[in-house]
Design a protein around this nucleic acid. Structure first.
Lengths: 335, 335
DNA sequence: TATATATATGAAATCGGTTTCATTACCATA
DNA sequence: TATGGTAATGAAACCGATTTCATATATATA
């Protein structure tokens, strides 16, 4: 491409009249170097605008200064928010994240994981996903691992996740407390544990309130907007009455809200809605969506910090988070 | 961490009874290897589950198999959509993207750029941003570069961008054609060229229709939802009548829509809205937002393909994209 | 059959650092 | 003054691949 007079550590050593060992030492601070020499080295580095070759560094030291991030769906607000947090949390450290996308597809996910491992990441953050815990367990022997937004019992303390059951329970209870009894539920993809647990929380809240769950009122979605709209259509054609909808995430709540709009049903006057996530767009739905807030950015940051701790053999900080009910304007009292 | 009997190329060579040169050759396909030996090597690789050390590869070959992506705002739907496209476009190739975030902050952006360069990326994709063209021009001498969502004249053919002037012109014209004459405009952050060009398109469309632009009807936003809401508040307090709003992006259109809702103004009966971007959420606004579609994912994919072409010394494909009007339900005829 | 050419392979150099180990210089203690 | 210990430094080995170059073998040509 161009002149590209590559400056190497030897050039610095020569110019500073020291050995490359010494240059390496001032670079990494791995040993004390006499002040005059250190100064000479620094000066040479500056004058030649020297940039250590990261491959050579990695090869020799065995560290890549890279954190692998395995996400499931780039472009999804919730997952992206976690990524934001991770970037944030890694900022200032020497580590750069390198993210691979599993696209909620097992084979893709495994390939992505392998790619990350092949790149010899120093740490791994897995967001959601469906790779078996056992496989991850094997991974954890190779590289420090933190799991976000998914609970893997075997990995207990290394998981940053929330109580999905409880979140759903509280969301549903919120509706019940507003007088609703016919509460529909749009589930997430039931192949995912989170979706199942949320449904259980919903069911439990109903029975605790003495309401007999009606199977006709729950329809399976897939966590995406469109499925929320479809679900409402289905609910409506089934003909069962309902005064409220608990959607397993905000995306589906948006979809549901649009479908209701199409049918001329008002929110919240005719139908109340509660979602889960509190993604950035939720506050700007019309009307603003009542939802259970997942602190996605904070969780991402926590994951980054946790990985850094693991890398420095420091004890893990507290990784507990909980959901918070954000009562906005999509829930009305039902008479 | 564990047993970790690292398998190296020498182990493979030994087991397959060939030299490491030969192993390297079958690995990279850089030269013909006799069938029996090739088979032996492959067998050994498989049996030992050998994974080449990427640092050693990179150090020796000078290639990192890594594409740097400099974005400006992880978590923003539009930018994230481009990232999705890039991931998509790189999938299947041997290259992995590594993304750094400039956060629309010059110093941060320069640091991020330097990080990417220090990591010796083989190619660079810059999304938006404000680093001077001249600086990028110097960068382009070090590494193949593609710029997305920003036009840098000096880099002409390496830019994937759209005609913002025209998009704004057509969006405004769409409103005019529906009988609107008092059309407000919420600009983006005017420190960004895109925002300026969109405003110019808006202004031009007005004058071409013989409408005298009213400075009171344009308010500066910053491309974020909240600024859209604020802008509407401001417009309303100014007291100037307007029957339509052209927002420089969808995010601000969402904000505007919420503010109108708060004031009891109906969309589109009382006020029509047009945005720009057509981000995924736009189709789920209530009512669905009329907007100019930017093919973000496609642009990201094109950027990835273009970089790959550059890397293979192939000619660049066509990088022309254009915006398309997506007429949904936020524009009504004004009498 | 002798010679030229092409093909497959291995030995060794190289990429640019880190790290071990030995050496030297210096200071404190006996 | 002799001895032990410490601190700073350089030489050289090493990390694990790619690539150049030389060599041996096979094939084609005269």
């Amino acid at each position: 491409m161009a002149e590209e007079t590559k400056v190497t550590i030897d050039d610095i050593a020569e110019r500073a009249k020291v050995s490359k060992s010494t240059v390496s030492r001032v670079l990494s601070g791995s040993a004390v170097v006499a002040q005059p020499k250190r100064a000479a080295v620094l000066k040479a580095i500056d004058e030649l605008d020297y940039r250590p070759n990261i491959f050579a560094q990695s090869l020799a030291s065995g560290r890549s200064l890279t954190i692998g991030v395995l996400t499931q769906n780039i472009g999804s607000p919730f997952y992206d928010a976690i990524l934001v947090g991770i970037h944030e949390g890694l900022g200032g450290s020497d580590y750069s994240p390198i993210v691979a996308d599993g696209r909620w597809h097992l084979a893709t996910e495994q390939t992505a994981l392998q790619t990350l491992l092949d790149r010899r990441v120093d740490g791994l953050i897995v967001i959601g996903g469906s790779v078996q815990g056992s496989k991850l367990l094997r991974t954890v022997e190779q590289v420090p691992l933190i799991v976000v937004a998914r609970n893997i019992p075997e990995l207990g303390s290394h998981c940053i996740c929330l109580d999905n059951f409880e979140a759903a329970y509280r969301a549903t209870k919120h509706l019940i407390e507003h007088g609703h009894r016919e509460i529909a539920h749009i589930t997430g993809a039931l192949s995912q544990g989170d979706a199942v647990r949320r449904r259980e929380g919903y069911l439990q809240a109903l029975s605790d309130a003495g309401i007999k769950p009606d199977p006709e009122l729950v329809v399976e979605g897939n966590f995406r907007r469109q499925s929320g709209a479809l679900a409402v259509e289905m609910l409506l054609t089934r003909g069962r009455m309902f005064s409220a909808i608990f959607a397993a995430n905000d995306q589906m709540a948006f979809g549901a809200r649009l479908a209701l709009f199409r049918r001329g049903l008002r929110v919240p006057e005719d139908v109340s809605i509660v979602g889960i996530d509190d993604e950035p767009a939720s506050a700007y739905m019309t009307p603003p969506l009542t939802t259970m807030r997942q602190p996605a950015i904070e969780m991402g940051e926590a994951a980054a910090h946790a990985i850094l701790c693991l890398l420095n053999d420091e004890p893990l900080p507290n990784l507990q988070f909980s959901m918070e009910l954000i009562a906005r304007e999509t829930v009305a009292r039902h008479i």
